[in-house]
Every structure is written in C-alpha cells, then in structure tokens.
C-alpha cells in the first residue's frame, strides 16, 4: 500500500488513472470469466433441481425455461417410494461409508510403513503400489468375480469390506500414496522423541503419528466416501440380487422400468408428444437428485476441508 502511494508522487496523474482503470477492467474481466465458468460447473446441479421440480405442463410450456410455474414436490414423493429410499440408502451407506472408514484407517498404516521405514524390497513394493493404481479394473474383473464367488461374497457387503481392510478396493492404492506423501513431510524428531520416552513402533504410530495425519485422513475419507457412493462398477459386479441393490443401482432400475413402460404402453414418439416421457424423466431427475443429496449435504458442510485439505495434505507432491 505504502509503496504505491509513494509512487504517486513522481508519476504523471494521467498515467496512474490509466493504470487504475486497467486494473479495474482486469478485475471485472476476472470476475466475469469466473462467474460464467461457474455457471458451466453449476449447470448439472441446477438442471437437476429445476427439472426435478417440473410437471409435464411446465415442459410443454415454452415460457418455462428454468423455473416451473408451481412449486411441487410430487416428483420427489413418488420417486422416494420407487427408489425404496430408506432401504437402498442404508445399503449405499453400508457399501460406501463403511469401506471409506476402513480405508482411512488401514491405508494410513500402510502409508506410514512405506514413508518411514526402509527395508529390502521397499522400492519394488512402492512401484507395485503405483502399478496397482494404474491397472484398469477391467483386466481383473473375471478372476476377481470368480474368487469372490468362491468365498461367497457376492451379494454381500464383504465384497466391499474385505478388500478395503487389505488396502485394495476402490482406489486403495491412491490413498496409500496420499498417506505416503503426507507422512514423508512430517519431521522425524517426532518419532525419536516418542522412542526415547519408551513407546514402541506401534504405540508411536497410534498415539502420535496417526492423530497428526488428520488432514490426510480427511482427504482420504471424503474422497473414498464420494467415490464409493457414486461408483457403479463394483456394485454392478458384486451385487446381482435385485433385492439388494443400492441407491445408484435402484436408480438405473427405475430408469429402465420407465423405458419399458413407455415402449410397452404406446409408441415412444406419441408418448413423447403427449408428455408422458417428460414426466417420467422428471421423476428420474428427482431420483437422481435424491441419490446424490447425501453427498451434496456432506459437501455443503465439508467443502472447506475438501478443498483446503487437498492443498495441505500435499497430494501434489512428486
């Protein structure tokens, strides 16, 4: 501040004015850019909200673009039952919240081992962690399914829990890498002090190092939870019993039913003209909104941590 004021003394008045206007123009341009881009980023959620409130009449009405004529939650009420929300929600929690919590804990242990210990074969094992992250899941689909079938884990939560305990599962190796990066950044004196005070390796970890890893834990937990929640690949593979479907699967089911209803009932095109398609579509949009609602609420409260902890946990290392 002081600096710029002192400059004013030896600068012609015109120049500072020009400089100031260009600064303002720059700022305005910056905001315009940001706001228009954020519209693009908000678009899916705005679209979902708007469409899920609409009734067939609104879609036929050309004057309605975003805001429906009357406020009605009937789509939500209908789809809530169709989704069997309370049941499927519980199942989604069981196969996303639980593995997320497990991964947060177990990947920390492994990450700590890699970050703070040197042992023969460490380099190769580390390379294998990265390798695991890079292998497309498509490649091991078949043997994994056969293996889980042998263990009788198909249609059971164990298919999600056991791999999580062993640091595999959905992107487990990425989480290990995040912890490695984080623990590497902590000073070594912490452990030395604990050792001198007589704590063994495991006590040092559980009492000192693990609690210190809170920023990394937050990143891992939140990402694991969101990715598990939205994942369709694993549930599609391991949960085949339709009575055991989770939210995302059930959403696909009602979508499929809607299609069937339409093609069976009347020709698709006439249905479209009468406005049955849109009403079904709106219900599905309401269903989609209900499916991600828990994550949206979570994000609303943890948004800060999501963003800041990624920066603080130092994922962006080498």
């Amino acid at each position: 501040m002081d600096k710029s004021e002192s400059r004013l003394h030896y600068r012609p008045a015109g120049q500072t004015l020009r400089k100031r206007t260009s600064e303002y123009a720059n700022k305005i341009f910056h905001y315009v850019l940001l706001i228009s881009l954020s519209f693009v980023f908000m678009y899916p959620i705005l679209y979902l909200i708007s469409r899920s409130m609409m009734q067939p009449a609104d879609l036929a009405d050309a004057t309605v673009v975003w805001i429906p004529k009357e406020l009605s939650f009937s789509n939500f009420i209908n789809v809530f039952a169709e989704l069997k929300y309370t049941e499927t929600f519980t199942r989604s929690v069981m196969n996303s919240l639980v593995p997320a919590m497990i991964q947060t804990f177990t990947c920390a242990i492994v990450g700590y081992g890699f970050a703070r210990y040197t042992f023969p074969g460490r380099g190769i094992l580390l390379a294998l962690v990265l390798f695991t992250f890079l292998v497309p899941p498509q490649t091991i689909v078949v043997p994994l399914f056969i293996l889980f079938n042998q263990f009788d884990w198909i249609n059971s939560y164990l298919a999600f829990w056991i791999p999580a305990i062993l640091c595999q599962g959905l992107r487990g190796s990425l989480f290990v890498l995040i912890y490695i990066q984080f623990f590497r950044g902590l000073p070594g004196q912490l452990e030395e002090a604990a050792r001198i005070d007589g704590a063994n390796a495991f006590r040092t970890f559980s009492r000192i190092m693990f609690p210190l890893a809170r920023p990394a834990m937050l990143v891992v937990f939140l990402f694991s939870l969101v990715w598990h929640w939205n994942d369709m690949f694993q549930p599609g593979l391991f949960i085949l019993d339709t009575t055991k479907f989770n939210l995302t699967q059930q959403l696909s089911v009602i979508y499929g039913l809607g299609e069937q209803e339409l093609t069976l009932g009347m020709g698709g095109s006439t249905a479209g003209m009468i406005g049955v398609v849109p009403s079904q579509g709106n219900r599905i949009m309401a269903g989609a909104l209900l499916t991600i609602l828990p994550m949206l609420i979570l994000y609303l409260f943890t948004q800060r941590y999501f963003v800041e902890s990624v920066e603080r946990a130092g994922i962006a290392g080498d």
Partner: peptide, 24 residues
C-alpha cells in the same frame, strides 16, 4: 517393523491384484 506396517497391503495386493492378474 516396516514389514509389519505394510503387511496388510502385501496380503491385499497378492490376493486382489497379483493372483487375479495372473489368473486372468
């Protein structure tokens, strides 16, 4: 101590990555 810390991952890697990869 190092091996004990990473043992969980080693088991997981063999069971859910190495063996399935070989089998596939």
């Amino acid at each position: 101590e190092g091996y004990i810390f990473i043992s969980l991952w080693v088991i997981g890697f063999s069971a859910f990555m190495a063996i399935p990869l070989g089998r596939s």
